[in-house]
Simulated scan of single mutants.
Amino acid sequence: MTHSIAIIGASGYTGAELIRLIATHPSFEIAALAANSKAGQSVGAVFPHLRHLTLPDLVTWEQIDFSEIDLCFCALPHKTSQEVIAKLPKTVKIVDLSADFRLRDPEDYKTWYGNTHAAPDLQKEAVYGLTEFYREDIKSARLVAGTGCNAATGQYILRPLIQAGVIDLDEIILDLQCGVSGAGRSLKENLLHAELSEGTNAYAVGGTHRHLGEFDQEFSALAGRPVHIQFTPHLGPFNRGILATAYLRGAADAVFETLSAAYADEPFVQVLPMGETPSTHHVRGSNFVHIGVVPDRRAGRVIVVAALDNLCKGSSGQALQNANLMLGVDELSGLMLAPCFP
């Protein structure tokens, strides 16, 4: 059976990544592509690297006939996404890549994003899209909220360790570097080549990064008590990838065994041999996560490092993995591309 797919927000980085992945999917066919600012253009004109594909031209999302669509990916900015999704037919399954439905409490959304949610009923309906931990809920969901890419990376390290009780919950430090594509495709002065290259910088320092809302929500629910980690993101002078380093109080052997057991049957999450650390080079363009555990020189402390591709496993690949579950096809479909190296 072939499922008809629409992508709203197809002219951004995550939209292009969805097209790239779905192009090799055995059960999905792209029936509609929306990008209001570029409506009327071909995909090849907007993304020359996709010129070889036979695809529908870009239209406005209002022009899509959703009676012919099984599932829609919504790759719009936050706030815009909730307004559009609220107008889509209830018969269409939706995977949202924005931040609009990640936080369950409307007050939490207002705190972190600065505006009142326009679709609170949908916010309550949405299932959090971290596939490995919400797989069964995702299978029966109509609306899935993709995670933040930084939030996903940190959670792959920390969720199993918090649930198993093998680390000190009050001493969690997460230091993270993200490639510039994580900031989206819109023009920003600080993302100009001359401003960004040959350097790096911390941003949202001191607890202001919006993905902390996801960390607070997910980690506190797991622990049954408030958990507030210390988190500092850095903007790296590279296009793709996230490298997250967690500094933890806990026994290295217990941390390694817990992570190894948690991901033993997960096809996309690989725990490296003890003492090895991952590189963004080794997951680039793929849906894989690599995790490494290294004992600290001080007894009772451990360092855990995770790498993933922010556009794939951190966003569009995760979205496709969830869509596979929602439509009852093989979860791995369209996602077994090997990483690009070098």
Rank of each mutant, 00 (worst) to 15 (best):
V294R: 14
D170Q: 11
P48I: 08
S37P: 01
P267H: 12
G317I: 01
L311R: 01
L122K: 03
G241M: 04
F215N: 04
P233C: 09
V180W: 11
T258E: 02
T245G: 05
P342N: 11
P160I: 02
I5D: 01
I7F: 06
R102N: 13
I8W: 05
G9H: 15
N36H: 09
G182N: 14
G154F: 00
K87C: 15
V304K: 10
P342H: 10
Y128R: 08
R297M: 12
L272D: 14
L248M: 05
E136I: 11
Y109D: 03
I173G: 12
H290D: 10
I94E: 00
G148H: 02
L308F: 04
R104C: 10
C72Y: 02
N201G: 12
P48S: 09
E62G: 05
K188V: 10
P295H: 06
F238I: 14
S186L: 12
D265M: 07
L55R: 03
C72R: 00
G206R: 08
Y113R: 09
A202F: 15
H282I: 00
V59T: 13
P226W: 06
D170V: 01
V43S: 02
S197R: 12
Q155K: 07
H3M: 01
A45V: 02
Y134S: 11
Y203V: 02
L311I: 09
G213V: 07
T2R: 10
D265I: 03
E331R: 11
A246L: 06
V304G: 06
S197A: 14
G334M: 02
G207P: 14
L337A: 13
P160C: 11
Q155D: 13
H282W: 08
L259K: 07
A262L: 07
A119R: 04
R225Q: 12
Q163P: 03
N310W: 01
V166W: 07
R185K: 14
I291R: 12
A221S: 13
Y203W: 08
S279V: 02
I19L: 10
T280M: 14
E83H: 12
N239H: 11
H3I: 01
A35V: 00
G224S: 05
D57E: 11
A145Q: 00
H290V: 02
E62P: 05
R298G: 05
I64S: 01
D100L: 00
C149I: 01
R185T: 15
Y109C: 01
N115D: 12
L248F: 09
V255E: 03
T277I: 11
L325R: 01
T2A: 08
S333C: 06
T232E: 15
C312V: 14
L169Y: 12
V304M: 09
A118I: 06
K110S: 13
V227N: 11
L259I: 06
I242N: 04
L259V: 08
T153S: 14
I242D: 03
A23Y: 08
V289I: 13
Y13L: 15
T111P: 05
I167M: 02
G285T: 05
A307K: 08
G114T: 07
T245F: 02
P233S: 09
T60M: 07
R301P: 04
D175V: 09
A261T: 09
Q217W: 10
L33E: 10
V59C: 14
